[in-house]
């Protein structure tokens, strides 16, 4: 059974005012448990609105959302439990930090779940390790940390709820390349270790190609594609028409194969490209 399922999901902003806008337009979607999904789309394509429906922060104007087989909004009292099941990390999550210490801030979510002290402590230590926050930092104020550290504390705050689905909205935006790789790498480690479903919203095709097992493309409020990276990047022309690009390395290899070099068309990460090139070279 699909862990996330939407039926005809539609959301309209500002109904009845001159600012009316359809943000999500009849989206039908099924995401299987354990999947690592990259969500891409242009600014304003509706991806952020879509993900806010998956934990019941927004109520669909029309259509249904099912999480783990349970329909959202059928019983409003269940929403809070759904939110523990579907952890959502917003863009710039460091702006939500508020507690006196890092430890307490990570504990906020688990505490709201009503877990025991021991369990909370275990989860804090585990998630802090996963996102690379050293235990010496636990007693510091979150406002004293560096930008990248704040971001990782905020992500740990959601991970510590151990949600079945973890959704991250541009977790790497505004970070330097090193911080970027570090955070994305840690998210992938988390996925490997926990075998949970992860949705990663990103602008960067490179990031998505590197980590995701499936890619969901949003365009003009509609679900354009939900497929494997190979199949998505095969439609390079269509993607560039909607202002998205395929990874640079894919473009290089497409051009090579157009020139008659037998490299196939399924190259979308640099590592894969390296291995492929080495193989081709050693065959000669």
């Amino acid at each position: 059974m699909a862990i996330i399922k939407t039926e005809n999901l539609t959301y309209v902003y500002g109904e009845g005012t001159p600012f009316r806008k359809v943000a999500v337009d009849s989206v039908n979607l099924e995401i299987e448990e354990g999947e690592f999904v990259g969500v891409i789309g242009h600014t304003g394509s509706g991806k952020s609105t879509l993900i806010q429906h998956l934990n019941g922060l927004l109520k669909p104007t029309d259509g249904k959302v099912f999480i783990d087989g349970e329909q959202l909004w059928e019983d409003k009292k269940r929403l809070r439990d759904i939110r523990f099941k579907v952890g959502l990390v917003f863009q710039y999550p460091e702006y939500q930090l508020f507690e006196e210490t890092v430890y307490k801030d990570i504990a906020f979510g688990p505490k709201n779940m009503g877990l025991s002290e021991d369990e909370i402590d275990r989860r804090i230590r585990e998630t802090a390790r996963m996102v690379g926050i050293r235990e010496e930092l636990f007693d510091k104020s979150p406002f004293e940390l560096s930008g990248g550290q704040k971001r990782r504390v905020a992500i740990a705050g959601v991970m510590a709820m151990e949600p079945k689905v973890l959704i991250l909205d541009e977790p790497a935006s505004g970070l330097d390349p090193k911080g970027r790789d570090k955070i994305l790498g840690q998210i992938r480690e988390y996925h490997k270790e926990k075998k949970n479903t992860v949705l990663l919203v990103s602008h960067s095709m490179e990031d998505v190609a590197k980590h995701a097992g499936r890619i969901l493309v949003m365009n003009k409020s509609k679900l354009y594609m939900y497929d494997t990276p190979v199949n998505v990047f095969a439609k390079a022309d269509e993607l560039s028409n909607m202002g998205l690009s395929v990874p640079q390395i894919t473009r290089v290899f497409k051009r090579l194969s157009a020139m008659g070099v037998n490299v196939g068309e399924e190259v979308y990460t640099v590592y894969f490209a390296k291995d492929l090139t080495m193989k081709l070279l050693s065959n000669k």
């Binding site: 922060l57 939500q96 709201n112 705050g157």
Partner: peptide, 28 residues
């Protein structure tokens, strides 16, 4: 939204509980 996603409960509870629930919103 971000605090609700972390399970903050803003709608139920006594007056004092609700006032306390505002802290995670007011500080940020």
């Amino acid at each position: 939204s971000a605090q609700k996603a972390r399970g903050a409960d803003l709608e139920t509870g006594s007056l004092i509980q609700r006032a306390k629930a505002l802290v995670p919103i007011l500080i940020p």
